[in-house]
Design a binder for these strands. Structure first.
Length: 917
RNA sequence: GGGCGACUAGCUCAGUUGGUUAGAGCGCUCCCCUCACACGGGAGAGGUCAAAGGUUCAAGUCCUUUGUCGCCCACCA
């Protein structure tokens, strides 16, 4: 049976097949009755109409790595997928789409509009989940959820009504953040602040019945049309005589009072402030204190309204311009200065947010925040009902925010979302809040009821996600088994938007924290440090990258860069490196497969290699002893496995990925495979079988270690290699555990010595420009009998990997100079006459002088090192305080350094006598 | 105005509790298309860890100050 696979790894040929297989076989369907400890994770639901971006790719890679890792370790694992209706952004997308077709969504009417959005959701909504399937995320697709599905909506209504009945949800008129483009109120979090260079206009307000002016400074002249007072500080002597008088509001010719209020900063501007309660939150407070009128001078789309008199109809910025001109013309503009201030921008539309008086629904937060605060503050490993936040520095951020939390504006003037379950009676003042539509007024019995037109902030339903998706409020098997979820992986940019709200609502409604740990992943940034964004054209499209490099390479690359707490800048180089790694793995497997035939031809059933019990017994001994290289490999494997398991347990993806990389490429391919090649063909059948068994067991373990990072590649290769019949997927197999019996310090030390000997020999060859294939004679010297013995026992491998015709053990130290190298423990020399003869004299002189300089530099470095060590070791305080291990180690190193120094000095002496042979 | 983070090899970045000669990928130099892999193999060069001070037997790692850059929070007109 010929086992041939393509010469290079071609992910496009492989990925779709396994992606489909995993879904079709429902391999990752969770079973609440299955045994094992629980690992459950719910996806941060991406926007239903969105598509996968690079941030998702990182997030989902991390989630899937941990999910697959836990599953392989025998956990009862659930990875629950789903999407978010994403109220405001979805509505914007559909509105724009309609606009492109020349349709005004207002004219369509609410019902028809909602229908169109559902239609759009049906068409576009599966894109992101299809992509998730295509990149092989190991979700349980039978449990897919959507925040606006009937089931989730019922939970939303239930929660709303409960909070209302508890008095935590209320309706009130106050100054809110208004987006004139989205035409809805926004929560504080949806307003992003930006520092911008603006102006401070100093405007003269004439004092009534006097020739005096009071000068106010403002950054927003257009709001003066709604001024209802001018305020000064009560103790400001400059204006004391004016308090109680009135001014004539310029342009409007309205008389407004001069009042005294302590909120005024005497140092700022002129010390006199215009008060516009309807358009500034500070002024709103002042207005309340002084019972001032609130004059809204704008329309909901940011134009001046009728109250703005002659400016009505102008856009707010046009009005500003016009007003400034008019003031100037009237001699009322004293001066204009530059002023930097931070302004609020709508997160979605990027428009400047307008503070505006409006009646909205709010959720009181203080009471909800307290238990969440407690759960995070009191976290300790293993402590029930507390939440761990990783990385730790985000924890303080979380606590600070919750400490200063303000009420949450939960209503939105949108059509796409969970409609607020509140009805207003047309015949009395009654407000009815209920889970199901009421038929008549609970107070007057009237049937004239209208439902509140607004919908809920999209984060309201997301806030319920960890329990709404698991069947709450019913005590379903899923809820009982998988809640609280084990872990939440999400971006730190939505720590407050989402994580905090889930924590609060989860604890409030279920009495338990919704997740035990929150791991906040990095953000993927562009080369210039910005957050990647498709709209800015700076985003990398993961679908394109997956095509180009393969999903596995992409995943591996992201994982290897995902150090907690630092952002990621992705580069083609880095992706290419990961792709090369995938190819390396592929080719190592190819090597195994190509040789399997030969092995089989020798009469051994390859099925034997597939048997788990055969693999479990590795490393096998040949002739009574485990060959050094095998003992070394499995000892390394034990170390790497330990490291990977501990790194993944601590969300240190990069450490885990890099460790596997080094192991596979460096240890397994460069050394192990190269070393065992001849053994596989050994005419001593028993030895060959041992070599094969060990090779397969080693490769099998490596494949499993790699699987969470590179699921497609490993699944494909796993199926190509002999496996027990009936085994469906590497994903359902066991993850390696570090075996105590694999640990072998002596083997690691001995093989490291062999590697060093080979390295030094190759080094001389390269320096002497010996042709790669030319076998040269070499000499070896070591004062240590142990070292000599280790080298003697591994002579074949050394000769082969260093391309020697023979290695002679000499009894005396090899004189310094010529084609030799020294370390503290041994000397090696090659016979230059077997190498390539004479380069030109000129070249030799240059080389010699370069080497001389190198030797001198090295001597200098070692002398410095020796001096520092001698000083430390001679220091009594050091000896008494430093750990024994450090002292011991330093002493040994010092001895070695001294030997090295002596040899180098000898070498230098040789050089000075004359050029080397 | 507060708070946080970054500054380590030409580039992009690792470096958990301070402990013997600071690492990786890419790039660079030299040699090789050797029967798994040129998406490869072999051998190298390259860093006074942003600056200054301090703590310590010992500092890339802890403290202070400064500089540059980035982020978050905050109602200063």
């Amino acid at each position: 049976m010929a086992r041939e696979i393509a010469k290079a790894y071609e992910p496009q040929q492989i990925e779709p097949r396994w992606a489909e297989y995993w879904v079709k076989e429902a391999l990752f369907k969770a079973d609440p009755n299955a045994p094992g400890p629980v690992f459950s994770i719910v996806i941060p639901p991406p926007n239903v109409t969105g598509s996968l971006h690079i941030g998702h790719m990182l997030e989902h890679t991390e989630i899937d790595i941990l999910t697959r890792w836990h599953r392989m370790r025998g956990y009862n694992t659930l990875y629950l997928p789903g999407t978010d209706h994403a109220g405001i952004s979805t509505q914007r997308v559909v509105v724009k789409q309609l606009m492109d077709q020349g349709i005004d969504y207002h004219k369509l009417g609410r019902e028809e509009f909602e229908k169109r959005v559902w239609q759009w959701k049906a068409e576009a909504g599966s894109q992101i989940t299809e992509q998730m399937k295509a990149i092989g995320e190991s979700c349980d697709w039978s449990r897919e959820r959507f925040t606006l599905s009937p089931e989730m909506s019922r939970v939303v209504r239930k929660v709303f009504v409960a909070l209302y009945n508890e008095g935590l949800i209320y309706r009130e008129t106050r100054l809110v953040n208004w987006c004139p483009v989205c035409l809805t109120v926004l929560s504080d979090l949806e307003v992003v602040h930006e520092e911008r260079q603006g102006n401070l206009w100093h405007i003269r307000y004439p004092v009534s019945g006097s020739k005096e002016f009071i000068v106010v400074a403002t950054t927003r002249p257009e709001t003066m049309l709604g001024d209802t007072a001018v305020a000064v500080h009560p103790e400001d002597e400059r204006y004391a005589h004016l308090v109680g008088k009135t001014v004539v509001l310029p342009l409007m010719n309205r008389r407004i009072p001069i009042i005294a209020d302590a909120m005024v900063d005497r140092e700022f501007g002129t010390g006199a402030v215009k008060i516009t309660p309807a358009h500034d939150s500070n002024d709103f407070e002042v207005g309340k204190r002084h019972k001032l009128a609130e004059i809204d001078v704008m329309t909901d789309d940011g134009r001046m309204n009728a109250a703005a008199g002659p400016y009505a109809g102008l856009d707010r910025f046009a009005a500003r311009k016009k007003i400034v001109e008019d003031l100037k013309a009237g001699g009322l503009l004293e001066k204009v200065t530059e002023h930097k201030n931070s302004i609020g921008i709508c997160e979605r539309s990027k428009t400047i947010v307008e503070p505006r008086i409006s009646t909205q629904w709010f959720c009181a937060m203080k009471g909800l925040a307290a238990p969440a605060l407690k759960a995070v503050r009191e976290y300790e490993p293993g402590k029930e009902n507390t939440i761990q936040i990783v990385p730790d520095n985000r924890r303080q951020e979380f606590l600070n925010w919750l400490d200063n939390i303000r009420d949450w504006t939960i209503s939105r003037q949108l059509w796409w979302g969970h409609r607020i379950p509140a009805w207003y009676c047309g015949d009395c003042e009654q407000v009815i809040v209920a889970e199901e539509p009421p038929t008549k007024c609970s107070k007057c019995g009237s049937g004239r009821l209208t439902q509140d037109p607004d919908v809920l902030d999209t984060w309201f339903s997301s806030g319920l996600w960890p329990f709404s998706t698991l069947g709450w409020p019913e005590k379903t098997a899923d809820f009982e088994k998988y809640y609280p979820t084990s872990l939440l992986i999400t971006g730190y940019d939505i720590l407050f938007f989402w994580v905090a709200r889930m924590a609060m609502l989860g604890i409030h409604f279920t009495g338990k924290v919704p997740f035990r740990t929150v791991y906040l992943h990095s953000l993927v940034r562009t080369g210039s440090g910005e957050k990647m964004s498709k709209s800015k054209g700076t985003g990398l499209d993961p679908v394109v990258l997956n095509q180009q490099y393969g999903t596995d390479a992409m995943r591996f690359c992201l994982a290897s860069m995902a150090a907690p707490g630092t952002d990621i800048v992705l580069s083609d180089d880095r992706l290419g490196g990961a792709r090369n790694f995938a190819n390396k793995i592929w080719n190592a497997a190819r090597f195994l497969l190509m040789n399997l035939d030969k092995f089989e031809a020798g009469g051994t059933q390859i099925e034997e290699l597939a048997a788990p019990e055969v693999r479990a017994k590795a490393p096998y001994a040949a002739g009574g002893a485990v060959p050094l290289v095998d003992a070394w490999l499995f000892s390394r494997l034990a170390g790497i496995t330990e490291l990977v398991n501990s790194a993944l347990g601590n969300y240190r993806f990069h450490e885990a990925a890099q460790a596997v990389y080094q192991f596979f490429w460096g240890d397994f391919c460069d050394w192990y495979i190269e070393w065992v090649k001849p053994e596989l063909q050994n005419t001593d059948r028993e030895r060959a079988v041992v070599a094969w068994r060990n090779l397969f067991a080693g490769f099998d373990a490596a494949l499993r270690l790699l699987h969470p990072f590179m699921p497609f590649l490993t699944e494909e290769l796993w199926h190509q290699l002999p496996q027990p019949s009936g085994a469906k997927s590497i994903a359902l197999g066991a993850f390696p555990e570090a075996q105590a019996r694999w640990k072998n310090d002596a083997a690691e030390k001995d093989f490291a010595l062999i590697q060093e000997v080979i390295l030094e020999l190759r080094n001389i060859r390269a320096e002497r420009k010996v042709e790669p294939k030319r076998k040269v004679a070499a000499e070896f010297y070591s004062a240590s009998a142990d070292i000599r013995e280790t080298v003697r026992q591994n002579l074949d491998g050394i000769q082969r990997l260093a391309v020697l015709s023979g290695l002679e053990f000499v009894v005396e130290s090899i004189p310094q100079g010529g084609a030799m190298r020294s370390t503290a423990r041994f000397d090696v020399r090659i016979d230059p006459t077997t190498g390539t003869p004479a380069t030109s004299i000129n070249a030799r002189v240059i080389e010699a002088s370069a080497e001389l300089a190198k030797i001198r530099k090295e001597i200098e470095r070692i002398e410095k090192d020796i001096a520092s060590k001698e000083r430390q070791l001679g220091d009594e305080t050091f000896r008494s305080r430093a750990p024994e291990k450090i002292i011991r180690g330093m002493e040994t190193t010092l001895e070695e350094r001294q030997v090295e120094l002596k040899k180098l000095q000898e070498r230098l002496g040789q050089f000075e006598k004359g050029p080397p042979a």
